[in-house]
Amino acid sequence: MITDAGKDSEDFGDFVRATGTQLYRQALLLTGDHHLAEDLTQTTYAKVYASWRRVSRADNPVAYARTTLLNSFFSHRRLRRSGELPTDPTLGRESSAPEDDPETRLDLLAALTILPPRDRAVLVLRYWEDRSVADTARDLGMTETGVRTRSRRALQRLRPLLGAELTERTM
């Protein structure tokens, strides 16, 4: 016989297996570090599990988890000086290399970490999650103008690191 608690755990396990990869990748783009991304993802799912009975009945548990991830990211980042390490601006010049070049791929994560966390979040939501300006603004508690401004400014800052090819056409 499966108890309510057992069923909860089973459902939660299924939820994590279905959504965990996506959430972890988002965490990686936000933090720029595998260990921090792992921490952030674990923290997020722990909070989700703590409210799982309520969350599992919600219309969109994934949206709840995503919001929890963002909130946890903004509260954790206070401690993570390493999250904003300066990056050698010459590194990004290699971004015209083939996309599967490991060094180029490392540069993209490193480049993102030079941005303030909120700018990073704007770019990740807009260009990785492909969310609209309005949705991004709502998720981050900003105005749509604020999202556009931050997005443009962030891409401009990344241009010397990643090359105009990658950032200009996006803007």
Binding site: F12, G13, V16, R17, G20, T21, Y24, R25, L28, L29, E38, T41, Q42, Y45, S95, E99, D100, R105, L108, L109, L123, V124, R126, Y127, W128, D130, L155, L158, L162, E165, L166, T167, R169, T170
Partner: peptide, 23 residues
């Protein structure tokens, strides 16, 4: 039309967390 978005997807495409450990 969105090369930056494509680059982000390419960058994390091969990243796979240990989901059982995560659970």
């Amino acid at each position: 039309p969105m090369p930056f978005g494509t680059a982000l997807h390419d960058r994390v495409r091969d990243e796979h967390p240990d989901l059982d450990h995560l659970v």
